[in-house]
């Protein structure tokens, strides 16, 4: 089976979410931290969420006059993939965790 490493941007998103641990992150904060545009970060978040690597939830109790924001954090599978990507021999490690991704 062909193994594809995640794109550098996807790996960066995974790494940033991994650094946040169990805490939730907002999309705009990810854009700022990574220096990426929303047009890059959101399709990655969508893809990761659809593959079960990222969990999403809506903020509870947003300030008056502002809609609730969407929040993101790694799922256990996502955390495992992020750890695998951080290993010295990532190709083999990624292959163990996920057979095919971008």
């Amino acid at each position: 089976m062909r193994v594809r490493r995640p794109s550098p941007q996807t790996a960066a998103v995974l790494s940033t979410l991994a650094a946040a641990g169990a805490g939730w992150s907002h999309g705009y904060d990810l854009c700022r931290v990574l220096g990426l545009k929303a047009g890059t970060v959101y399709p990655i978040l969508i893809r990761l969420a659809e593959r079960g690597l990222v969990e999403t939830s809506w903020e509870t109790g947003p300030p008056r006059g502002r809609p609730a924001r969407h929040r993101y954090r790694l799922s256990p599978d996502g955390a495992e993939l992020a750890r695998a990507l951080a290993e010295p021999s990532p190709a083999r490690a990624v292959a163990r965790v996920v057979p095919r991704t971008t």
Partner: peptide, 13 residues
């Protein structure tokens, strides 16, 4: 939901 997420995020900026 992603459309709502984008709009809500913009409202916070």
């Amino acid at each position: 939901a992603w459309g709502s997420a984008l709009r809500a995020e913009l409202a916070a900026i």
